[in-house]
């Protein structure tokens, strides 16, 4: 019976203090009755391996004890989906931008890649996970959850979203922003060798002309696309592709602008030559340092635009899949492509 006593002792270890004696007495009684019955059947005492088999059938001490314990959790099933969502967003927010910036430094400015200390990324991730978990545990255990669960109204739920619908307001804002951009771009940054900006004279490299006209063409294409979107406010594969092309081309050109160091110098009536040289060096340095961040933004734009194409494509596919076939010919809803 030594095995039985050891088993009961192990179960007892995990039980709540107040109920320990009671539960163990009852469990012990049941197991002893089982052993007695088995021994009566066999006409002999049980061997250690037979007793071991009987105890194994009952389950591990932890498993047996856990059945007597109330269900406990830090974050319950109601809050868990929101917890997982927030944790995912936070961790992505911690990891992805830093990683992309680091890649940017590695490609364009390897000497300065130590500027971002990747070593403390793990620390950031653990801290973010800890504080998110703590916040949700507090919501779960302080009764805030119940208030949050009550505070809802079907009328206040967000309207049904059509991810492929382009808001007309967005298109109008885009058109307005592009018109303002054209006005400023042509008035202030007209591609002469020297640009006069708010009384200061900025000297740019001749390559600026190429950038100016290329950017003008891109902005005009964007204006045309926004115009089409205003009157046909649904994303299509071709328009999503054009958006990707224009966004990536614009981002790539901006990165090139930073990399090419087109900025040669600055002068102003009240600015000494020394100060102007300092200011020029500072602006060049800022442009160089901004390059990795610009690459990050470019990659983010590329990913977002690619995702937009994928969304249109999968939505078209789903729509085509559910359209019934007529006389054996599958019809598809016009998608505007």
């Amino acid at each position: 019976m030594e095995l039985l006593d050891r088993y009961l002792q192990a179960v007892q270890f995990f039980l709540p203090k107040k109920q320990k004696a009671d539960i163990i007495a009852e469990l012990s009684e049941d197991l002893r009755s089982q052993i007695e019955e088995k021994e009566a059947e066999l006409g002999r005492t049980l061997t250690d391996s037979e007793l071991e088999a009987l105890l194994k059938r009952c389950g591990s001490p932890w498993e047996v004890a856990s059945r007597y314990l109330p269900q406990r959790y830090l974050i319950g099933p109601t809050l868990f989906p929101a917890y997982r969502f927030f944790l995912g967003i936070l961790l992505l927010g911690c990891v992805v931008p830093r990683f992309l910036v680091w890649i940017g430094f590695l490609i364009f400015d390897p000497a300065d890649r130590g500027y971002l200390n990747m070593g403390n990324m793990l620390e950031t991730i653990v801290s973010a996970a800890f504080f998110t978990t703590l916040a949700f545990a507090i919501i779960e255990w302080t009764g805030i959850k119940l208030k949050l669960m009550d505070y809802w109204n079907p009328r206040k739920l967000p309207p049904v979203k059509d991810p492929n619908r382009i808001s007309r307001a967005n298109s109008l804002v885009e058109i307005g922003a592009l018109v303002v951009f054209f006005a400023l771009f042509f008035q202030v940054l007209w591609p002469g060798p020297v640009i006069d900006m708010f009384g200061a004279k900025i000297v740019l490299a001749p390559a600026w002309r190429g950038f100016f006209w290329a950017y003008t063409v891109l902005a005009m294409c964007s204006l045309a696309l926004s115009g089409v979107n205003l009157f046909r406010p649904y994303r299509t594969k071709s328009r999503a592709f054009w958006r990707l092309l224009l966004d990536v081309a614009g981002g790539a050109m901006f990165c090139w602008l930073l990399k090419a160091q087109l900025f040669l110098g600055i002068s102003a009536p009240n600015l000494s030559e020394e100060k102007a040289a300092e200011l020029t060096a500072l602006l060049k340095l800022i442009m160089a340092k901004a390059l990795p961040w610009a690459v990050v933004i470019l990659v983010a734009i590329l990913l977002m635009s690619s995702y937009r194409i994928f969304r249109v494509w999968s939505s078209d596919r789903r729509r085509n899949a559910i359209v019934p076939s007529v006389n054996g010919v599958t019809t598809s809803i016009a998608t505007g492509t």
Partner: peptide, 20 residues
């Protein structure tokens, strides 16, 4: 123990870890 046996005999098998 007798409750468990009674249930088992009537086809309602239940182990001690669930019953108690």
């Amino acid at each position: 123990y007798t409750l468990r046996k009674a249930l088992n005999e009537q086809g309602m098998e239940i182990d001690e870890g669930t019953l108690y």
